[in-house]
Amino acid sequence: MIDRTAASRVSTAVLSSVLVAGLAGAGAASANAQSAEAFYKGKQITFIIPSGEGGGYDAYSRLLTRHLDRHIPGKPRIIAQNMPGASGLRGTNWLYVVAPKDGRTMGATYNTLITEPLLGNTAAQFDPNKFEWIGSMAPQYNACMVWHTSPVKTIEDVKTREVKVSTTGMSGNSAKTPLMVNMLLGTKFKVIAGYKTTGMRLAVERGEVDGICGLSYDTYVAANPEWLKDKKIRFILQAGMKKVKELPDTPLLIDFVKDEKQKQALQVLSVRDDLGRPYLFPPGVPKYLVTAARAAFNETMKDPKFLADAKRMKIEPDPMTGDAMAAAIRKAYGAPKDIVAIAAKLWPPAVPKKKKKK
């Protein structure tokens, strides 16, 4: 027989311990918020954007900085600062190596840089597992497009003719994506580098290049909505693991790939797509400030004023929490070595330029 009196005593004890733990957790959260409020009150946060003005990273980051301050305890003023260079590496390295670690500096990074240390890029002077991830505003699934006047109608056409695509630098995703597609599908994309963030899109309008392969659909939504409205561009391939809802008829790269290990390598690389618009603290920031910033980010994503501003910009937030980001990165960095090696061939790390001897 079951001793119901004893069971009742056990249940009561368990319930009491749960309540105590819950109250302790709530008390800790309250203490964190109060400590963060005392720290941030009257202070300023510098928010580093590792791209030039006018691009997708800039648009998303400035949208966030306009609203995040209302939800950080103490309501510090947030100042956005662009730090472009080396396809996001300059700003990201600075955030890891140089930036103050007192909670008064945060920033964005390019999602494609998250796997660079894994793939062997020695110019990436950071360990993604040591950044304090705050959150991501939305995933970012890259696509290849051509201008509406181009004779190229499908990705198959790129196998039979050279198609010029613009990029800022050879280490960025708008350079590496077309080169990866060339390796996997035998296409003939020719990458033209050296443009500024806005200049690479102007090059398409001017006819200097045929298109761009490696920017996300939402970048065009934020930076060139008139191109979409007036049907100025034609999407011919999507490089992510799943289709953007606005491009249901544009094929996925992985659907053309037959080799199973190459598919697994693409899945390792896809962590960057899911983390799309990532925001972070440098490593070493006090945990109570990280907790406060993560909570503030989550609250911002539900803020009616933020959502109205995002709607005005035609941006649809689909956030990921900082904890979920950290878990996804740990999983990617735990991939089998042979799969990582294939991923590194498909997405070769940049080779640092050698300094000329005097």
Rank of each mutant, 00 (worst) to 15 (best):
Q125V: 12
F131E: 12
G135W: 00
S136W: 01
T149K: 15
P139I: 08
V146Y: 12
Q140S: 14
E132F: 11
T149E: 14
C144D: 08
T112D: 09
Y110M: 02
M145N: 02
N142R: 10
H148Y: 14
T122H: 02
N111M: 05
A123P: 00
Y141H: 14
G135H: 02
N121M: 00
I114M: 03
F131S: 09
A143W: 03
M145L: 13
Y141K: 14
I114T: 05
A124P: 10
M145E: 06
L113G: 02
P117S: 08
K153F: 05
W147D: 10
T149P: 09
T115S: 14
W133I: 12
E132N: 15
E132Y: 11
F131M: 15
T112H: 10
W147P: 07
T109P: 04
L118A: 04
I114S: 00
N121P: 00
P139R: 13
M137A: 14
M137P: 07
Q140L: 11
A138P: 01
V152G: 08
Q125W: 10
S150E: 12
I114A: 01
Q140Y: 13
M145H: 08
P151N: 06
W147L: 12
P139S: 10
T149L: 12
K130N: 13
P139W: 04
F126M: 09
I114N: 01
C144R: 02
P117A: 06
G120Q: 01
L119D: 03
N111I: 00
T115R: 05
T109I: 11
T154I: 06
C144A: 15
T154H: 07
Y141L: 14
K153P: 00
E132K: 12
T122D: 05
A138W: 02
K153G: 04
T112Y: 07
L119N: 05
W133C: 11
V146S: 13
L118V: 06
T115K: 11
S150A: 10
N121Y: 00
I114C: 02
L113C: 04
D127P: 07
N142F: 07
I114L: 12
A124N: 12
S150K: 06
T122M: 01
W133K: 12
Q140R: 08
E116G: 00
E132I: 05
S150L: 11
P117L: 04
T149W: 14
A124G: 10
E132Q: 15
T115Q: 12
F131G: 09
M145I: 10
Q125M: 14
Y141P: 08
D127A: 04
L119H: 03
A124S: 15
K130D: 13
V146G: 08
W133P: 04
N142C: 05
P151E: 03
F126I: 09
A143C: 13
Y141R: 15
K153D: 11
P117M: 07
N111C: 02
M145Y: 11
M137Q: 13
H148E: 15
I134L: 15
I134W: 04
V146E: 12
T149Q: 14
L119S: 03
W147N: 12
S150P: 03
M145Q: 09
L118F: 03
F131H: 11
W133R: 08
F126P: 06
T122P: 07
F131Y: 15
S150Q: 11
N111D: 06
W147E: 11
F126S: 07
N121R: 00
L113M: 09
V146N: 09
E116L: 03
N121T: 01
T109W: 06
E116V: 01
A123N: 04
P117I: 03
N129I: 00
P117R: 03
S150V: 10
P128T: 05
